[in-house]
Design a protein around this nucleic acid. Structure first.
Lengths: 221, 221
DNA sequence: TTATGTGAATATCTTCACAGCG
DNA sequence: CGCTGTGAAGATATTCACATAA
């Protein structure tokens, strides 16, 4: 049983983007795309697109291109996105509420099934159809709802503690919006998005006169 | 006059993080850090830290480490963050409001000075002390307030148009939260953050059994 | 003695260029 | 003939290891 062939890390980033564009092509009724087309709407070279896709499956047809439905399904299946993923959100402040109301998740295969907060004045309120529960209910919900992903949107000082709780509850992956690196046991995936860092990078690019770049975030082991 | 030595792109990403940690050390009253210490709180090797920092300035002292205030100032100055950067936000929906209420910007050298929306029912409301203005006022404000950065938090369908307006108004860098790549003229910096893509990457990592990674985003020319 | 800064070695990623299939 | 898939070449980025300076 061959383990999984090693998907280069930068390629994994791009595969999410191909998937997104594929969904768009699908909606628009486009039947077939070439590596050239797929790449150009993302600012990626055709050769790069082919190399990335080839490490996932031979989904293209020579002389023709990639059939959108096939490619879409291949990408989804290969990365476990064919099934529904369940996530919980911890921290219902500004960012948390934005995530609960975020449209593009709806059509996605990932859904936020529950939200938690420590603040009694927030507990019980409803956002995007989900009623905020007390943090103590976290472990129970993660287990009974078979939740696999956690989103952290609490203040910096509480981020690590929340991460620990999520891991203890059985979550397998974490997305963190607090501006700290969170440490998780090996075997758990985690990454961070920091708006301030993000904006600074743009400022840097402006100063340096650079014009292309790729978004940020921060990794964790 | 030597232009600017080429800062490797991945290094630029990390420099923002060093800056963030430096601010934290400064607040905590730490006087001096080694490359080892700075790296470990970010999950980055000491050698990597030294290499990154060396391409910006020789701010360290052999046998001792980096003096926090010196390093902080060096990083800020080298990347133009010593001065105040002004940004505008377009799109006061869920994400926009989260950004207007985002704490960590306060202490930062980047501030969102104005917010715009197309929707009359939102115009005139106040968030985080900023009253939402009509989109038509954009160009005027950007010019009179000497705004250099723009943040896009509008629906996908409007993102490119808003980007065009921002560029026309004179903005030099753009951070985009809509799940599309926006195209900007060369000389303008832009990058995107897509929550759904972000969460999917985590899901991928879980499936692939990977455990470390770095956040996403998407570049534009 | 300790921890930086950096040439050289290594590993990783991207692009080129073309063979091969539809 | 067009476009994929991929070895081989080229470009970047990371790590190693040590000379060097405080």
């Amino acid at each position: 049983m061959p383990t999984r062939l090693p998907v280069p890390k930068p390629a994994a980033k791009r595969l999410s983007l191909y998937l997104r564009e594929c969904e768009r092509f699908q909606e628009d009724g486009v039947a077939c795309v070439s590596s050239e087309e797929l790449g150009s709407c993302l600012g990626i070279s055709a050769a790069q697109v082919r190399r990335d896709l080839s490490c996932v499956a031979q989904a293209g047809q020579r002389g023709v291109g990639y059939e959108v439905p096939v490619l879409l399904e291949t990408l989804q299946r290969e990365f476990g996105l064919a099934r529904e993923w369940r996530a919980v959100l911890v921290g219902v402040g500004n960012i948390g509420r934005a995530l609960l109301g975020y449209g593009p998740f709806r059509s996605s295969t990932i859904s936020i099934v529950a939200a938690f907060d420590r603040d009694p004045s927030v507990i019980g309120s409803t956002w995007g159809g989900r009623t905020v529960m007390p943090l103590d209910a976290l472990a129970h919900v993660v287990q009974s709802e078979r939740v696999e992903l956690g989103v952290i949107a609490v203040p910096t000082s509480a981020a690590q503690e929340v991460a620990d709780r999520l891991v203890a509850a059985g979550v397998r992956g974490i997305l963190n919006f607090a501006p700290v690196r969170i440490v998780v046991p090996s075997g758990i995936s985690a990454s961070s998005v920091d708006f301030a860092v993000e904006l600074r990078r743009i400022a840097m690019d402006v100063v340096l006169g650079a014009s292309g770049s790729t978004g940020v975030g921060e990794g964790t082991k």
